[in-house]
Design a protein around this nucleic acid. Structure first.
Length: 481
RNA sequence: CGGGGUGUGGCGCAGUUGGCUAGCGCGCUGCGUUUGGGACGCAGAGGCCCGCGGUUCAAGUCCGCGCACCCCGACCA
């Protein structure tokens, strides 16, 4: 009978994900392989992400700008490691206006080079620093295996690019923005993340140090949800970004870049979702409260709709995002399931009994079944709903944190690591060497996720879990998206 | 790029040893009855059976060649 549900997570997590993304109307496939259409409901979720980040970027002194989609091919080649990293996944325009171009144009896979070129023009003196720029844009990377939101050939993101007078300032910026991502993920998206430094193998092409926030999905795989890079002077030297210091001497700038993409939408889906579908954190949910009217007869309809309108207006005026589901041809039961699948945090039901009793029924999405349902007075509903939404936000973060902590294990031997990493995350002493990392990857498919900034045993050291050489830091290992 | 699979109304599928007007479920349209956890009746609409070429009295079905997509192994926010 019920063919409208999604494949249960326990049965097939990958299918659950594609089911829920499509059935909840977040996104659709496109006629171009590997690209996606972001539907209004999915785009509103992304707009929530944008708003939360943009506010934080402005608060830390950054300004938005826009740089071109097309980048001269030669720009990419100026930074050796950068080209090498990106050339396999570039889309290149060779014909324009029916004529072969003198120099091919690369469709940006990221904008360090073209922004570096602009920075070189804009910066002359230490008085021009720091230069703190962000852009919201689409980028293209030619991917073979794609999945909606997680990896598509074209995706939306923001990329911050900054230039500083000293390495200390650039480092501080890199870590500050990692902190901004962490704050957003934890407080707005209710996703507990681990901020850390990437190993050399996992570093961004052209960076000195890369940092990331790592999140655990419900299938226990890791997802890099945002990255921040200390670019040293690599791009400053490649693009001649120099300034005159207080002593009238020419110095190369120190630059950073940091990005977070529509992948975050996938992270939200896979962190909170359950067998019934999405569960969206109230701060980001496009619809925070859905109101479902219930009535039998035309006589009941009038009073019920009056109450529905009164309640929904009051909630809207309180600044909440409210939707009234007045679809006449569908039963309430269908609507309950439909909105649960779409992840709306709180449902208000209003029927004849509620009209008579001056109550409404409230059902919270984070607690399944009858336990999540309660009848409350219409008087003071705005406050009740506000408090509940806060509680749901906190509850989702708590559930996700508990889930993650259950599946994190500190390991002392390679054998233990191999066993843990098959299905969970391992924390181990790690020298960071390429050979050690390659061995783990070959034998387990897991990679190092990061050296957490908050080390579990600060000041101590231990033998690398692979080679046994002394290691000063521990790293997380897991299979990753 | 190597191995496996699938192409039939919007979606999911069936279609016998080739045979008559190509079916089923969901969805869609109209009307009526319904509505507190996935309602029902009646009447409708919707198909170049992936493409091309063959075999045959006859092809969704058999043969050949393409094309597309999906799943699994090397790189990536």
């Amino acid at each position: 009978m019920s063919q409208q549900g999604v494949t249960p997570q326990s049965e097939d997590f990958a299918r659950w994900y594609t089911d829920v993304v499509q059935k909840a109307d977040l996104a659709d496939y496109s006629p171009v392989r590997g690209c996606m259409i972001i539907k209004p409901y999915g785009y509103e979720l992304w707009e929530g992400v944008k708003a939360g980040l943009d506010r934080r970027f402005k608060a830390t002194g950054h300004q938005n700008a826009y740089f071109p989609l097309f980048i001269p091919e030669s720009f990419l080649k100026r930074e050796a490691e950068h080209v090498e990293g990106f050339s396999p996944e570039l889309a290149v325009v060779t014909i324009g206006g029916g004529k072969e171009l003198e120099e091919p144009l690369v469709v940006r896979p990221t904008s360090e080079t073209i922004i570096g070129w602009a920075f070189q023009k804009w910066i002359q003196s230490h008085r021009d620093l720091p230069l703190l720029i962000n852009q919201w844009a689409n980028v293209v990377r030619w991917e073979l295996r794609t999945r909606l939101f997680l990896r598509t050939m074209e995706f939306l993101w923001q990329e911050g690019h900054t230039a500083h007078a000293t390495h200390e300032e650039a480092e501080a910026e890199t870590l500050q923005m990692l902190g901004v991502y962490e704050d957003f993920a934890v407080n707005d998206a209710a996703i507990p993340v681990i901020p850390g430094r990437k190993s050399d193998q996992e570093r961004f092409a052209g960076a000195v140090f890369s940092y990331s926030i790592e999140a655990m999905m419900r299938d226990r795989k890791a997802l890099q949800a945002g990255t921040s890079h200390d670019l040293g002077q690599n791009f400053a030297r490649a693009f001649d970004i120099r300034y005159t210091d207080e002593n009238n001497e020419l110095q190369y700038c120190w630059t950073t870049s940091w990005g977070l993409s529509t992948r975050m939408v996938g992270a939200i889906v896979m962190t909170h979702g359950d067998d019934k579908g999405l569960r969206l954190p109230p701060r980001l949910a496009p619809i925070q409260v859905v109101v479902v009217p219930i009535y039998r007869t035309a006589e009941e309809q009038g009073p019920v709709m009056d109450a529905v309108n009164r309640v929904s207006t009051a909630l809207r005026e309180a600044g909440l995002r409210v939707h009234v589901d007045a679809r006449a041809n569908l039963s309430p039961g269908f609507k309950f399931n439909d909105w649960e699948m779409r992840g709306v945090p709180l449902r208000v039901e209003i029927g004849p009994k509620d009209v008579a009793n001056h109550t409404v029924a409230l059902a919270r999405r984070d607690i399944a079944g009858r336990e999540g349902k309660q009848f409350v007075p219409q008087a003071g509903l705005v406050e009740t709903v506000r408090a509940l939404l806060d509680d749901i936000q906190a509850s989702l973060l708590r559930q996700a944190t508990e889930f993650r902590d259950q599946h994190l294990h500190e390991v002392r031997s390679y054998a233990e690591l191999v066993e843990v990493v098959d299905d969970e995350w391992a924390l181990a002493w790690f020298c960071g060497g390429a050979a050690c990392e390659a061995k783990i990857k070959d034998e387990t498919q897991a990679t190092s996720r990061c050296f957490p900034l908050k080390q579990p045993h600060p000041g101590e050291s231990g033998p690398c879990v692979v080679c046994g050489q002394p290691a000063r830091e521990m790293a997380y290992f897991a299979k990753a998206y």
